[in-house]
């Protein structure tokens, strides 16, 4: 009788936990979808996954809960972050839709699918709950192990093969065979001289006293930034930062603040505006 009741309704504590954490999970999921930067999405997803891990634990799946945290949030999400770093952590996606009607169709399908799914669950007569207590009686991990190594042993073995294949596949996909010998530094310099395009070493990046500034292009004598000064990888990612007008805007802001403070003084000196224009 008590187990039956426990199955039908959960404890108030769990209910409270559910409502709070479910909200967090949904918000996290939405943020995953709508954050502009991939790294933010990844962090939000990690949050959602931790919440899900808590839910697993609450549902009596202790092993899965731990695995969720260790494998998913620990390994897989870190893999994601690693790739995000590789691709460019600062790159922000434009959320403008380029395919005509895609967003509306996606929303329509999503809402329709969701409504159907929720309606389907609501319609289903889920009355007979058994509760996990009996299954977990011998310990959750032991129960799982007993199943995995008896009834699901073939699936388990095949999973092993799948993982090996995936590992090999990832290697094949990312590995590039060198078809010719790497050129030595001497050869490279000789080639540079022969081509006569850029004989001295590449120029150093610009320096801006806020961070290490390898992504800031050095300015040429006429004030334009030179892309040559930035590392090729950053160039490819489009991560060159142009700070040449930042300094000017800072200066402008400073001047404005000064002007506000010296408002009265400005009235007395009407020629100030003209000098400012001249300075521009």
């Amino acid at each position: 009788m008590t187990t039956q009741l426990a199955a039908y309704t959960t404890s108030t504590g769990e209910a409270f936990q559910f409502w709070v954490l479910a909200t967090v999970a949904v918000i996290g999921a939405l943020c995953t979808v709508f954050m502009k930067k991939a790294v933010h999405s990844a962090l939000c997803l990690a949050g959602t996954m931790i919440v899900l891990a808590v839910f697993y634990l609450a549902n009596g799946a202790y092993f899965l809960g731990i695995v969720q945290i260790v494998v998913y949030t620990g390994a897989i999400m870190m893999l994601f972050l690693f790739v995000v770093m590789l691709v460019g952590v600062t790159a922000a996606d434009s959320l403008r839709e380029t395919i005509k009607g895609q967003r509306w169709l996606a929303l329509l399908c999503g809402v329709g699918f969701g409504v159907l799914l929720l309606g389907g669950i609501a319609n289903a007569s889920l009355k007979d709950f058994d509760g996990i207590g009996k299954a977990n009686a011998g310990g959750n991990v032991e129960g799982l192990a007993a199943l995995i190594f008896t009834r699901y042993v073939f699936a388990f073995e095949i999973t092993g093969a799948l993982l090996i294949t995936a590992a090999v596949g990832a290697m094949v996909l990312t590995h590039r065979e060198r078809t010719e010998r790497a050129r030595t530094q001497r050869e490279l310099s000789e080639q540079r001289v022969r081509e006569g395009k850029h004989v001295p070493p590449l120029p150093a990046p610009g320096v801006y006293a806020r961070h290490n500034a390898v992504d800031i292009a050095g300015l040429l004598p006429d004030g334009t930034p030179s892309e040559l000064t930035v590392n090729k990888t950053l160039r490819d990612r489009g991560q060159i930062r142009d700070v040449s007008d930042e300094a000017l805007s800072d200066l402008k802001a400073l001047e404005q603040r000064a002007a506000e403070r010296l408002e009265r003084a400005e009235d007395e000196r009407p020629t100030h505006k003209r000098t400012e224009e001249a300075s521009k």
């Binding site: 395919i99 895609q102 169709l105 996606a106 399908c109 999503g110 329709g112 699918f113 159907l116 799914l117 309606g119 389907g120 319609n123």
Partner: peptide, 21 residues
């Protein structure tokens, strides 16, 4: 565009769910 194809797949899945129901 893979996303367009995904929309049709997703729409198809929705239709399947609707049919099942």
């Amino acid at each position: 565009f893979a996303r367009s194809y995904a929309v049709s797949m997703f729409g198809g899945a929705a239709v399947l769910v609707a049919l099942t129901l």
